[in-house]
Amino acid sequence: MLPTHGYFPYHPWVGRARWNWPNGAKLAVYLGVNLEHFAFGEGLGAELAPGGPHPDILNYAWRDYGNRVGAWRLLQMLDELKLPCTVLLNSSMYHHAPELVAAHRARGDEMAGHGRTNSERQSTMTEAEERAMIAEATDAMARHEGVAPRGWLSPWIAESRATPALLAEAGYRYTLNWCMDDMPVWKTTSAGRLLAIPYPQENNDIPAIVARKDGMAQFADMIVEDFNERLRQVRDGIPQVMGIALHPYIIGQPYRIAMLRGALKRILARRRDIWFTTAGAIHDHVVNLPEGSIPG
């Protein structure tokens, strides 16, 4: 027997319970918009081009382009298409780009926790350090938003062995860290249950465009083909979640936002057949389903 995490058992896709999202939909679609801030000249940083020693001006400035320009283009597109989103927020953004956070707040977008900054990784922290980091990020969001966040995506999707329990202990209700399913799954922790909501590593601009070197046309086609295939699959009655993960310093480039808009318009042509929503609303629907409706 190999070591295991103990959060949930294996549950095959076949034989899953059949139930509906709101309005009878079988496919829920949400956008996860990552608003991230990085320390200058130290710590971790996404390398969009081969990085050099700190200060890595090229990659730092490229990332900050997302907050200064790209995110505003993305907001304009969301307004144009009348789409909600879940904001995955580094709490340091309240200091770095408060106007950007305020613009999402004014739209009524859901705010989910994404740590303090993507310059750090909680899997390398002691349990006390990690608990303090979660508390600091959560308190900042509660103070600015008037309500504590219910969902969490770890910076770099990095967890320690204590992370799920620490999140449940801090009052979180769902996590986006685990990408092992196309349906929400209940995780059992020592501090209570935590819902794992699917967060994509395929329909995600960083793995696709930065890591795999896909062009934007290929990424846009991938989103549409993924959507079309899911719509075909849910005819069997098993509901699915489709997430699309976006980072403004990638997707906010003019030619990329244009192709993303086109892909989303193709999805919205089938809006009556789907539930376009937020991760938090997915959680709220799931908790009201009869026990045993989802794995866990």
Rank of each mutant, 00 (worst) to 15 (best):
V69R: 05
G108P: 04
T163I: 05
D139Q: 12
M77N: 02
H96N: 00
R116T: 15
G45F: 02
R116E: 12
P164G: 04
E145M: 14
R173A: 13
G115C: 07
R173K: 15
A103I: 03
A148M: 09
L167M: 07
E129R: 07
N118F: 11
T138R: 15
P164D: 02
D64N: 12
D64Y: 09
M133H: 14
E159L: 15
R116L: 15
W156N: 10
I134L: 15
N90A: 10
I157W: 10
R161Y: 06
A106S: 12
S160E: 08
E99H: 06
M125R: 13
G108R: 02
T163V: 06
L167E: 09
P98L: 10
L81T: 08
A128L: 09
Y60I: 01
G66S: 07
D79R: 13
E159T: 08
P50H: 07
P155N: 05
G70H: 12
D109E: 03
L78S: 04
L167T: 10
S119K: 08
A97H: 13
G146N: 06
A61S: 12
S123N: 05
R161E: 13
G52P: 02
T117I: 11
H54G: 00
D109T: 08
D64V: 01
S91Y: 05
G52C: 10
A142D: 10
N59E: 11
D56T: 03
W152Q: 03
S92C: 00
H104A: 02
Y94F: 14
L100I: 06
R105G: 02
T86V: 00
N90L: 11
A106C: 05
K82P: 01
P53T: 03
A106L: 13
V87H: 01
R161L: 07
A140T: 11
T124H: 11
E169Q: 12
L75H: 08
H95Y: 02
S119F: 12
A142P: 00
A135I: 06
E130R: 09
H144N: 14
Y94E: 07
A148C: 09
P149D: 02
A71T: 00
P50T: 08
M133Y: 06
H144A: 14
V87I: 14
R105H: 12
A132N: 12
E80H: 12
E80W: 06
G171S: 07
A49L: 13
P84F: 05
A135E: 15
A165S: 13
V147P: 00
W152L: 04
C85R: 00
S92Q: 02
M133N: 02
Y65M: 08
V69M: 04
A102Y: 04
T163R: 00
M133P: 00
Y60P: 04
A103R: 14
G52N: 05
G115K: 02
G171F: 03
A112K: 04
K82A: 15
C85A: 15
N118G: 05
M93Y: 01
I134N: 07
G66E: 10
G146D: 12
R107K: 11
A61V: 13
W72Q: 11
T124C: 00
T163L: 11
L58S: 03
P53A: 14
T138H: 12
T163H: 07
A162W: 10
Q76A: 14
N67T: 12
P155K: 01
P53E: 13
L58W: 08
Y172N: 07
M77L: 15
L81Y: 04
L81M: 02
Y60K: 07
Y60S: 13
